Computed example of a mutant assay.
Amino acid sequence: MVVHTTVPAAPGRLLTLPGVYAPQDDTELLARALGREAIGPDTDLLDLGTGSGALAVHAARLGARVTAVDIARRAVLTARLNAMVARQRITVLRGDLTAAVPGRTYDVVASNPPYVPSPSVRPPRRGPARSWDAGQDGRAVVDRICASAPAVLRPGGVLLLVHSALCDPDATVRRLAKEGLETTVADQARIPFGPVLRSRRSYLRERGMLDGEDGEHMEELVVIRAERT
């Protein structure tokens, strides 16, 4: 089995098993947002869809008590390996989003979920694309997080959620605001299309998701911050 090594700036050096999402620009953007929060030894943090464990390791280095969740077995193994390599104590659980932590609440919930719009109606149940494909509007997992994450936030708790502007950040803000959270776009960045989006230009164009000539080549990432006041 080949093990890929990646070096994202914020979380540090990580191992990534085949089929597990390797840390990219969205990981670093979310790590940067996490660094602006008051994270310390008294912070209980939940990382939903941990993938390689990059955010979990980063949060543990900031001092948080971290629980990381992923539905994919290889992701759980990868996150546990990276926690050991980084010498960080992280609880890594296999499960489906917040269903993996029944009855628990947290000061911070962070998530970098699948969010790439796909011609397929339903997200894949296996394979590498499971890490990024999220239904025809890219919101199959984002909407589930908007519905479930507020219930595990303590008073004053914060949800940090990163996704593409292709899947409608305003809809995310509205959904979380309806849950009683004070919600804003906390950070954003423009990056060139990667291979997956380049291969889907025609599909995105047909759905009216591309905006102007620049929108044919550049993707905007956003971090949504939602606080239970």
Rank of each mutant, 00 (worst) to 15 (best):
H4W: 11
T5L: 14
V7E: 14
P8T: 09
R13E: 15
L14Q: 11
L15V: 11
P18C: 05
D25R: 14
T27C: 07
E28N: 14
L29V: 04
L29K: 08
A31F: 10
A33N: 01
A38V: 12
P41Y: 03
P41N: 09
L46G: 05
L48E: 01
G51D: 07
A54P: 10
G63V: 06
V66W: 04
T67F: 03
T67Q: 03
D70K: 09
I71W: 10
A79L: 01
R80Y: 06
L81R: 15
Q88Y: 03
I90D: 07
P102C: 07
T105P: 05
Y106P: 04
N112P: 04
Y115I: 07
P119C: 10
P119T: 08
G127Y: 05
A129D: 14
S131N: 08
W132K: 04
Q136C: 12
I145Q: 01
A147P: 05
A151K: 12
A151M: 05
G156W: 09
L159C: 09
V162T: 12
P169D: 03
A171Y: 01
V173P: 00
A177Q: 11
K178T: 12
L181R: 06
T183N: 07
T184P: 01
Q188G: 15
I191E: 10
G194P: 03
P195F: 03
L197A: 09
L197F: 11
G208W: 06
G212K: 09
G212Q: 04
E216T: 12
H217R: 15
E219V: 05
A226E: 05
T229K: 13
